[in-house]
Nucleic acid binder design. Sequence first.
DNA 1: CGCTGTCTTGAGAGTCCTCAACCGTGGTGG
DNA 2: CCACCACGGTTGAGGACTCTCAAGACAGCG
Lengths: 240, 240
Amino acid sequence: MPAPLRIDAQFFALPAVARCTSCAARPVGVCAAIPVHALTRLAATGVAMRIRAGQRFIEERDVAAHFFTLTAGTARLLKMLPNGRQQIISFPGSGDFLGLASQGGYNYAAEAVDEVRLCRFPRDALRRLMAEFPAMEKRLLEVTSYELSMAQEQMLLLGCKSALERIASFLLARARKTATGQRIMLPMGRADIADYIGLRIETVSRSLAHLKSAGTIGFATPSSVVIHDFAVLERLAFCA
Amino acid sequence: MPAPLRIDAQFFALPAVARCTSCAARPVGVCAAIPVHALTRLAATGVAMRIRAGQRFIEERDVAAHFFTLTAGTARLLKMLPNGRQQIISFPGSGDFLGLASQGGYNYAAEAVDEVRLCRFPRDALRRLMAEFPAMEKRLLEVTSYELSMAQEQMLLLGCKSALERIASFLLARARKTATGQRIMLPMGRADIADYIGLRIETVSRSLAHLKSAGTIGFATPSSVVIHDFAVLERLAFCA
DNA sequence: CGCTGTCTTGAGAGTCCTCAACCGTGGTGG
DNA sequence: CCACCACGGTTGAGGACTCTCAAGACAGCG
């Protein structure tokens, strides 16, 4: 039986006006399109939650009753096949918006990779927000359009690239996303990486080991990578 | 040197009011969001063109100066890698909208599979239309969101499925899209199919031959397929 | 300290790719 | 009219890359 989702008590300890203005995701998320004077109403329609690592909070094909804004942690979006195989679509993090459903049901399941914090809103709140603030709809189109271009880039990876090229692309994308110089953290395990780039876990491990023995990358721990040679990774990822 | 794009003379022979009202793509495309009284203005900002089979009409990474609505034929959207490999993203047809660019440049190239007819509009016309008709923006969000879910489905195919499962999925998707009962036409060649589902041309041919010898499908010509057993295809495509 | 889970490493097998030849059709020109 | 060629599609043999199965290494935790 799945554990019940937990309300975030810290959130409700705050005065309503501060719930959104103090949010880490506010400057980057779709909420940025909501003017300050309306944030209190926004906060009133939402529920802040904490999702434990591994816990699922969106079920594929469920009626899309809510939408979500992540405020901390990393999630994984995945599609399952009856034979047990699964494809991870993306690893959304703080500021990312979830829950656009193209025909009534969610297109993917969502699970927490590490502890995730998010705000959950009822779907008709989204409709009302979009009607009232056209900037919100515009922002949503931008975000969705960006997601689409990322998905297309991933199709290129899955359709054309070798194991080593996939790993290089993945590491570079992580470095770009988290922008922490040479050191990048991988909150997800090898199995998640494998499901994301269309390989088996052993192949991921072997490819990483190969890059390490070539001196291109190094490991502090299995989830902490240091990139020694960006040029090599870029040449691999670009398939030049 | 690429051949110049051709203006469609037939289009300009029509009175301006009829150019959009008589358009085959109008009921299904994003133009459906434009009220009839504004169609004359819409037609005035657009240029109708015919693209010969094989001709490219969008170049990857070019500045996204236009957007397009297909009115006839089939196109292919593709991303190229320096090593010559390419991934086909989708096969848009009549009614489909092209040209949303997430950061200034087009994310893919577009080429005509067979003879394509389309309407080309300047990008700022899109901005003005969206400002004036919120329904247009809403429609665009719906369309983009649907594209995203299709892309995610394709990621599942590229990341998880075997050659036979990919072919079965492709045939079913075609049957669903064109909705012509048992007989489906494949305007694209084997090479395009291969680039779309992440296989080599020989593997596509072998997989089709295998389905044929199993009695699941049949061929009138290489581009005309008859599906004899939907159930088998569905079992393969869903990986059950 | 043993256990559990994740990650790594090894050996063998399988699927798909590569290279190559062959087939059928449509168009061209002698 | 038919030979010829070009092109797309099919078929075959061998090889490469990744998967599968299995065992070992390592860290975290009761």
